[in-house]
Design a binder for these strands. Structure first.
Length: 512
RNA sequence: GGUCCGUUCGUCUAGGGGUUAGGACGUAUCCCUUUCACGGAUAAAACACGGGUUCGAUUCCCGUACGGACUACCA
């Protein structure tokens, strides 16, 4: 019998959701949709010291922005709540105690000073990896070494304690990762990880196994940083007696720095000037600010498409995928094994593709908002016309206005380099005539009529129209490059055009 | 250091015992054109190294190198 696929994304609310986390969420979402299953979100807030207010709301907002919201979550609960581990706190202890009873876990009373001393001792003795394990636990204060009476007395008197897993001495632990195949680890390299902390909270290891089991999780898709502790998790499933329903694991390759070494981090964002977070974030504790893809002008579909391709590909040459198409094409088998360097250029390219696929009306919204922010106004009709000729050259919606300002604002000064090369007597002659012809025109101009008139103006002086185009552009826009000039003329309109030409004729000097 | 994972153009990747090793971003050149951009075309650009196995290895195996993750009462 096939169980319904249930996957989860389990972030901890310790700050802004990192782009790697967003990709993990996306892959979980895609897999759930593809398999007709459910995508849940669980908040892993068992470390109360690292809690950051606003982080959970940030996670919610980011997923909503990207349209990959979970089916079950703290804010849209299903039947497996609560969806915050802090709210599940009362249920973990019984599982830890179950393990103690079965002899797979034990109480440990060592203070942090004693643990430090142990590590120092081992380091001094040149033990390769100082850890609390099958060997060292015999020298520590725990229910394996202390007399039973003392253990009972300590527990009764409220001595602080943790519960540790008792790793078996000689055992090969293996798991079949969906991405990496069989991974084998010998238990003697594992340590007796803490399961229950002295504050009564479970650690990640205990909580994630208990919750995944209780929530019916069938596949755990998470980052590669979890691979080393996966054997421990397998052991836990076994000791709980849940091995038959143990989820399948898929450990995703990491997102790496663009220049080589290590995981992508916020520092890379600052260093290279691109975002690594989905949205802007201001840390309430440190006051640190970080820019987001959303605010930087990335369209959600483009960002998602870009993200999907960081470690996955459909196996053919298609690159542009809507969310639905991604769902359709997605498979865990096609996720790569190796770490992926982050290339912002590719993200920009995706954004350009999506920007161009939007209608002029859709994009006008951005332009109108930006225009009004500058204290100007523009009709919807005109905005759409501006967008039509600007969107082919924009990467972000903000470029529409940033690069197209000259269409509503007359130039005050002119590009010197262009002026010295192109501004000459021929240009002045043609423009003077053009200005007159425009002034004598009774109707408003179109791109076609503007061009016909300009050609005429050049022809009467026996000058080739192409020869003066650069100068004309300079006169009207102030710069030497831009979109189709005649389309610009149509948008600017006759009166404004005449006024700009007059200003240029009065201002620009011929340089020799 | 130990354990685990990885390694195809600069980057993301396809491929897989015999291929001109394919695509995309970026770069360069050309075409289009009133400029720039878009678009189109072309080019440069990769199987980390060493051993096996094999008629043949980039592909399979083993080493080495390099990179990464993990190594907390953090997740």
């Amino acid at each position: 019998m096939n169980k319904e696929v249930r996957v989860r994304f389990a972030p901890s609310p310790t700050g802004a959701l990192h782009i790697g986390g967003v990709r993990t969420a996306l892959y979980n979402f895609l897999f759930a949709r593809k398999m007709g299953g459910k995508f849940l979100l669980r908040i892993e807030d068992t470390d109360q010291t690292r809690f950051v207010s606003g982080a959970e709301a940030y996670i919610k907002d980011a997923l909503e922005w990207l349209n990959i919201s979970p089916d079950e979550s703290p804010w849209s609960p299903g039947n497996c709540g609560p969806y915050r581990q802090s709210e599940r706190k009362p249920m973990y202890m019984q599982y830890a105690l179950d393990l103690v009873e079965k002899g797979h876990a034990y109480y440990a009373f060592d203070t942090s000073e004693e643990l430090d001393a142990m590590r120092e001792r081992l380091t001094a003795a040149r033990v390769v990896s100082p850890q609390y394990n099958t060997i060292t636990r015999t020298q520590m204060k725990n229910s394996l070494t202390l007399p039973e009476d003392e253990v009972k007395a300590r527990l009764a008197s409220g001595d602080p304690y943790v519960i540790r897993i008792k790793i078996p001495r000689k055992e090969e632990v293996r798991l079949n990762d969906m991405i990496r195949g069989w991974v084998m680890v010998h238990s003697n390299t594992l340590d007796d990880k803490v399961l229950m902390k002295s504050d009564g909270m479970p650690t990640y290891h205990l909580a994630n196994i208990v919750d995944d089991h209780l929530m019916g999780i069938t596949h755990v898709i998470r980052g590669e940083e979890w691979l080393p502790s996966a054997p421990l998790h397998v052991l836990l499933y076994r000791y709980f007696g849940w091995e038959d329903s143990m989820p399948q694991f898929a450990h995703l390759p990491l997102l790496l720095k663009p220049d080589g070494n290590g995981k992508l981090s916020k520092r890379d964002a600052d260093k290279h000037g691109f975002p690594v977070f989905p949205m802007d974030w201001a840390d309430p504790n440190s006051g640190d600010k970080a820019i987001g893809f959303k605010e930087a002008g990335y369209l959600p579909d483009a960002f998602l498409n870009f993200l999907a391709f960081l470690g996955w590909n459909p196996g053919d040459h298609r690159e542009l995928f809507t969310l639905d198409e991604l769902v359709d094409a997605f498979s865990v088998e096609r996720i790569g094994k190796s770490g992926t360097k982050f290339d912002i250029n590719k993200a920009k390219w995706f954004n350009e593709q999506y920007l161009r696929s939007k209608t002029d009306q859709e994009l006008s919204r951005y332009l109108i908002a930006d225009v009004e922010k500058d204290g100007l106004s523009v009709s919807e009709d005109k905005a759409a016309k501006i967008v039509a000729i600007m969107k082919e050259r924009a990467t972000f919606p903000a470029d529409l206005w940033k690069e197209g300002k000259f269409m509503l604002i007359a130039p005050q000064k002119f590009d010197e380099a262009v002026a010295s090369k192109k501004w000459n007597q021929e240009a002045i002659t043609v423009l003077s005539t053009y200005k007159e012809k425009l002034a004598n025109l009774n109707e408003s101009i179109t791109a076609e009529s503007a061009k016909a008139l300009l050609e005429e103006s050049a022809a009467v002086h026996d000058i080739k129209f192409g020869k003066v185009m650069q100068a004309v552009r300079l006169a009207v826009t102030g710069v030497g490059a831009g979109p189709d000039l005649m389309a610009v003329f149509e948008i600017i309109g006759k009166e404004e055009l005449i006024s700009r030409i007059s200003y240029a004729l009065d201002t620009l000097q011929i340089q020799s």
